[in-house]
Every structure is written in C-alpha cells, then in structure tokens.
Design a protein around this nucleic acid. Structure first.
Lengths: 209, 209
DNA sequence: CTTGTGACCGCACGGTCGTTCACTTAGTAT
DNA sequence: ATACTAAGTGAACGACCGTGCGGTCACAAG
C-alpha cells in the first residue's frame, strides 16, 4: 500500500487515456509531452518522468489501447460457442466499436499501424506484433468454425481472415475520411455474403443486414 | 519561353518528387521544409518561397502524386475494353504498383488518407475528393462490366467496389507492416474469387493466381 | 525519528519548426 | 540601356519540441 505509487498510477491512467485519444486522431508521433501536460494541467517534466521518454509514452499508450480492446471487444464475445455465428458476432462488434468512436479517430490500431508501417523501432514492432496476434485470432476462429463443420472444409483460413479484416479496416477508414456511415453497411453486407458463401448451413446467419 | 520559370518548375518537380516519397513513409504532416532543403541542397527559404506555405507544399505534393497515378496506373489500362477482364487487370496493376514501391512507403494515398481521415482542412478535402473519384471510377467500371453482360445483373456496384478497394488497400498495408509479400497473393486470390463469383462467364478470368 | 523514494514542479538547454524580410542573381520585356 | 520579375539565399523571429537538473513534498520503511 503506497499512496504515492497509487497516485502515480492514477495520473498515468489519465495521461494515457488522453494520449490514446489524440494518437487515434493525429498519430503516435504527433503526441507531445507539452501538449498533454497543458491539457491535463500537469507540468511537462512531470509527464515526462512518468514515462521516462517519449518512446516510453508511446509504448505505454499502445499497451493501454490493447487493454481497451481486450476488455471491450474480445472479452464480451468469449462465451459464444465456436462457429460461424461467433465469427459474425465478432465482426459486428468490431464495426460497432469503430462506429461508436470509442477512440475519436476510429480504430486506434488501424491509425497507428498505418503510421508506423514504413518505420522501424520498438513502437512499430509492438504494433506489428499486436496486429499479428489479431490476425492469428481471427484465423483460429475460422479454423474452429471449420472444425465444428459450419464452414466448408476447403476454406482457406488465411485468405478468409485477410478478407474479413480488410473489410473491417476499410469500413473504419472510409467512414472517417468521408464522414459517411454507409461504409459500415457495405462492410456488413460484404462480410455476411462472404460468410454465407462459405457456410455449410445457410440458416445460421441472418439474411441481410 | 522563360528560363527562370522553367528553372523554377524543375526545382519544384525535384522537391515534390522527394516530398511524395517522404510523405508516403512519414506522412504529409511530418514533411518539413528544412529537411527537404538540406537533402536537396537548397535553402529552407528557397523551398518555402516555391510553395508559399507548408500547406501549399502539401497540396502540391498531393497533386503530383495524383499525376503519377494517372500516368502510371490508369493510363496504361485505358485501352482495354470494358468488362471483367479490365477490372481484374486494374486490380493486378494496382497491386503491382504498390508492390513495386513506386513510393517507398507504399500507396501514397492510402498513407495520407489515413493520416488525414480524422482532421480537417484543404489537404484533407483534396485527399478525400481524390479518393472519392477513385471509388467512383471503380464503380463505373463495374457498372460497365454489368452493362456488357460480364457481371451478373444483380451485382451491387457500390458494395463490390468497396470490397475490391478494401482488399487492395489491405494488401498494401499488411505487406508493409509485416514486410511480407504474401498479403498480395491473398488479395489476388480473394479478388479473383470474388470476380469469378459475380461473372457470367467463368472462362474469362484465370483459374488462380 | 531518520532515511529513502516516487510524484511532481520550475527552469533552462539545444534543436527544429514555419514564416518573414532584405538581398543578390539572372532572364524577360520595352 | 532600363525596368521588371521570378528564383533563390541567409539571417533572424517566435513557438514548440524532448530532455536533464535541482528541488519540494508526501509517504513508507528501518
């Protein structure tokens, strides 16, 4: 029980919450210690000392965003039994999460992954690793849907996962750029069509969005 | 015939070429006059005066990137007759153009569209408009393929265009982030499957990539 | 009660940023 | 020859950047 440490953690949480918001809009590189400090009425050196360096702040911001996604997106879906419905439910939740602008700049990882995709360093590696895990997770859920016989056995899991994630990301990006929610409907339609075409039992999924 | 103006245009081209390269990697916002000047052995104020402001430089950079795409991507395909083969050819060219890293940070418009998708201003508007034109172009080619009877009449052009562009963009982004060309193969496979499923004559497209 | 530690502040540093301004140079037009 | 114009330079500006240092204060451990 250390009141100082607890106070520090609370401040850290406050800073990181705001940092994740800013980063989703303007990118992790455009995060600045001074701006965060001013907005949150702290001193620049105080914020600095909480994270040791700007890179430390960036890494901590990514980690807190990971936590948000695990809690808000993956956790709620974890009790649904494996199969095509779970897959569809995950996609729906993802679109809803993006649409709800939990991060004002849309999906945090989409924004930062694109920002760092052509760079190098610890931040890029952390983001790339996180993205890799997400892809693997989707692939596993596809494989399990095949295993329980709800997707046709010829299903290429890697390609299908690529397709689903592409549609999700594009909905996020397009809706932001054109300030137009119809991208979410298009993505839903496309995903539903794609899942139905690979399903063994067409009655498991809704007819249309 | 004005030697001064011509010299200026030449310098402008040189600056913009490098600016587009940098922007594809680090974004239009991280372009800096000083850095461009140092790299190209010009004075900072000289570069500045060629474009009047940083925003002017950003807008000019976007415009030159548009020109590159029109010349390198759209022009070569314009003589192919309307239909599903033209559609497939356009996608293949796009993937090849991205894969060849004509811009070292992959597709210039993908990088900058994501960067500016949650901002406002002239630069964002120009990028959004350009993206809108590209979407419309793909939709038109789909509609024409429907008109010549090569795609089934029930085809939803807006959704199909969304799907194709999503797959192209994702191939670009994923290949960069994970330094892995297999994303291009996945995209090709998915696009080919999708086009075949909507085609009236399955023999028009290759069997696989 | 002492000693140590972590949160946090104020201040200053070297550096880069976009922008301005006075200036030179060189090609055009009259 | 003269006046004009555009390209390009060099020095300076104010603002902001990440970082380091010295210090204050509240709390914890011995």
């Amino acid at each position: 029980m250390d009141g100082r440490v607890e106070r520090g953690n609370q401040t850290r949480r406050m800073v990181l919450q705001r940092a994740a918001e800013i980063a989703s809009i303007e990118g992790l590189e455009n995060l600045s210690l001074g701006r965060l400090a001013t907005e949150l009425r702290l001193s620049k050196s105080g914020v600095f000392s909480l994270f040791g360096s700007k890179e430390g702040l960036q890494l901590a911001t990514v980690r807190v965003a990971i936590k948000f996604y695990l809690e808000d997106l993956l956790n709620p879906n974890r009790r649904i039994p494996d199969g095509v419905v779970k897959l569809w439910s995950l996609c729906e939740s993802w679109l809803q999460y993006s649409k709800g602008r939990a991060f004002p700049g849309g999906c945090f990882f989409f924004a930062t992954a694109v920002e760092f995709s052509a760079r190098s360093g610890k931040v890029r590696d952390l983001i790339a690793g996180t993205q890799r895990e997400w892809i693997t997770h989707v692939e596993q859920m596809i494989e399990r849907a095949v295993a329980v016989g709800e997707l046709v056995p010829e299903t290429d899991g890697a390609v299908l996962a690529f397709e689903l994630i592409a549609l999700l990301d594009s909905a996020n990006g397009t809706s932001l750029l054109h300030d137009d929610d119809s991208a979410y409907t298009k993505a839903s339609t496309a995903i539903l069509n794609r899942l139905r075409s690979a399903s063994t039992d067409k009655s498991l999924l809704p007819q249309a969005v």
